[in-house]
Each structure stands twice: as C-alpha cells, then as structure tokens.
Simulated assay, not measured.
Amino acid sequence: MAGLKTLSHRYDRTVAKEQLLDADARTERTDLDGPLNYLLVGSDRRPGDSGPDQRSDTILIVHVPAGQREAYLVSIPRDLLVAIPPANGFGGGQDKINAAYEHGGGGQAGAQLLSTTLHRLTGIRFDGAALIDFSGFRKVIDLLGGVEMCVDTEVRSIHTNRVFATGCQQMDGAQALDYVRQRYDLPGGDYDRQHHQQQLLRAMLDSAGRADLRSNPVKLDQVLRAVGGSLTVDTNGVPLEDLLLALRALPPDGMRGVQVPSSPQTIDEVSYVVLDNGGNGLFEALRGTRVPAWAQANPRWVTRL
C-alpha cells in the first residue's frame, strides 16, 4: 500500500487535471463511500486539439457498487438521440450524444457539456471523470506486451483492410485499437463495437497484471508515464492515490459490460439510437444501489468481461 502511494505521488504530475464535470453534473461529496459513478470519454484527439473532428467516439459510465468488489461498464451509444443544452455558442437542440463534446468545443468545455447532457438524460451526478486519448493508449498496450482479444465475428477493417479472424489472439496496440473501432459488417453494429471497447479495457488490466510491473521498475516507469500522458482527469476533490487504492480491490472477474436498452431508428433519413422505455430502469438503478439486481433481471443487456 505504501508503495502504491509513493508511485501515485511520483506520477501524479504526469496526469493532466481539469474540471471535466459541469457543476450540475457533479456530486457534492468528496469521499468514496457508497456506490460511485464515473464518466469516461474516449477520443482519438487530445483535449485542446483544434480541428473539425472533435466527437467523442467512446462514452462510458463506470458504476462501482458499495464495497468496491465489482464494476459495471455502461456504454452509451454514440448515436443516441438526446437534447443537448446550449453552450459555447451552440444554441442547443436534438442531436447524437457524441456531438455534445464537439458542440462544447472539445477538451474541458466539451466534456462539461457532455456531462450536463448525460445528467439531464439520466439524472446521474458523477463522482469523477476522465478523458482518454485512445490513440495514446496504443503505446501503453505495446509496453504491456499486447493484449489478448477474443474475436467473436470475422470482420475486415474499414481503416486498414486487415481481416480479424474469429478466435482469441494476441494483438499489439495498433491492431487492438483498429479492432475496437469496427462496427460495420458486425451483427450488432455499434453494440458490438461498444462490447469490444469494454473488452479492451478489461484486457489491458489483465495484461498489466501479467506483466509483473513491480519487478521491472524501468517498464513500470514507462507504462505509468504513457498512461499519464493519455489521461486528463477530474477526481472531484478525491486524492488520486485514494482513488487508486480503492479501485485496486476490484477482482479480475468482477467486471461486467452493460449496454443501454435501446434500438436503432431512422428519423428524417438519419440513423439514430433511441432508448427503449426510457432505458428500462437502468438509469434509476445507476442513481442508487440496485445495479446488481438490475443486471440479474436484464441479462440480455449484460455480459461478463
């Protein structure tokens, strides 16, 4: 435990810190008691980058029930039709949720608008948030020696023309990130892409555990610096080392992937995703203590990672 505190102090300065959550979307508490909800936003562009492509390709709510013995990775569909409030010159209106980050201007302001949009949709107030540069994670994966990904459906990459054959296989950073971007020609479309992104996060944790980084201080230094360079965090006032100490108790088999109950729909010749029955009680469960019970009652939308 003392070693982890020393490491987190040492690398605390490598992680950028910003106010990623809007005030209305932020919990008032600054402790780790009770169920926790964290917002993870993934993009291929670093916060502050300028350019036309500022949409968030990955939006996850990480729910940790009280006791911190399991975690639920809830993927928000990128094409989910939502009401985005006005901000940063944007007048507000209906759009896909992954446009909220863009309408906010990307970076800190984009994350804040996304958090407000999600709060108004779900009623959830978040205990913290992180912006993840997934292109930067390529280096992390390579330093860990790659990740094992299990391909459930053969798919050809629309970006590299690489064919991913079915079966479990070792992938380097470029291959893994290419694979989890695919959604076309998959039976579940974007739902499959969401599941593969959840799998990647679990696979990275598995690789980190197998790498025995504590016995290789040089490699540990490289990995921690690469991770730090790929993250911008908002811990909501909780010291980073306290958060790491709490989350390290999660067992390897304690992660579940959750898809939001929803379905695709074409509106005015544009493809969207719309909620099924307001999310079928998922958001209410996330606001309280009933996520494990909800997952048991809704196995269609839950997978073990």
Score class of each variant (00 low, 15 high):
132 I>Q: 13
130 A>I: 04
99 A>S: 08
83 A>G: 07
146 G>C: 10
169 Q>G: 08
129 A>F: 00
129 A>M: 03
150 C>T: 10
99 A>D: 13
132 I>K: 07
143 L>K: 11
168 C>S: 11
187 P>I: 09
122 T>L: 00
88 N>D: 13
158 I>M: 03
118 L>Q: 01
179 Y>P: 10
104 G>N: 07
81 L>K: 12
95 D>Y: 05
87 A>E: 12
178 D>F: 07
115 S>I: 00
174 A>S: 15
168 C>W: 14
149 M>K: 13
106 G>T: 14
175 Q>E: 10
148 E>C: 02
79 D>G: 00
198 Q>E: 15
199 Q>A: 08
111 A>N: 10
115 S>C: 00
109 A>T: 10
113 L>T: 11
167 G>L: 10
185 D>E: 10
169 Q>P: 10
184 Y>W: 07
88 N>L: 09
196 H>C: 03
90 F>A: 14
110 G>V: 01
104 G>K: 11
86 P>H: 11
181 R>P: 06
190 D>T: 02
196 H>E: 15
164 F>A: 03
100 A>S: 15
162 R>K: 14
98 N>K: 11
122 T>P: 01
128 G>Q: 06
175 Q>D: 04
158 I>T: 14
113 L>V: 08
85 P>V: 02
139 K>Q: 08
98 N>Y: 05
76 I>L: 03
112 Q>L: 02
184 Y>S: 09
150 C>Q: 15
192 D>A: 13
200 L>T: 07
143 L>V: 12
81 L>P: 00
94 Q>A: 05
82 V>M: 00
182 Q>N: 06
88 N>Q: 09
99 A>C: 05
162 R>Q: 13
109 A>N: 12
161 N>W: 11
187 P>M: 12
177 L>E: 08
115 S>Y: 00
110 G>M: 04
168 C>D: 11
80 L>Q: 02
152 D>G: 08
115 S>G: 02
110 G>T: 05
142 D>Y: 09
85 P>F: 01
123 G>A: 01
155 V>F: 09
164 F>H: 06
139 K>I: 05
102 E>N: 13
195 H>F: 11
91 G>Q: 12
111 A>R: 01
90 F>Q: 14
103 H>D: 06
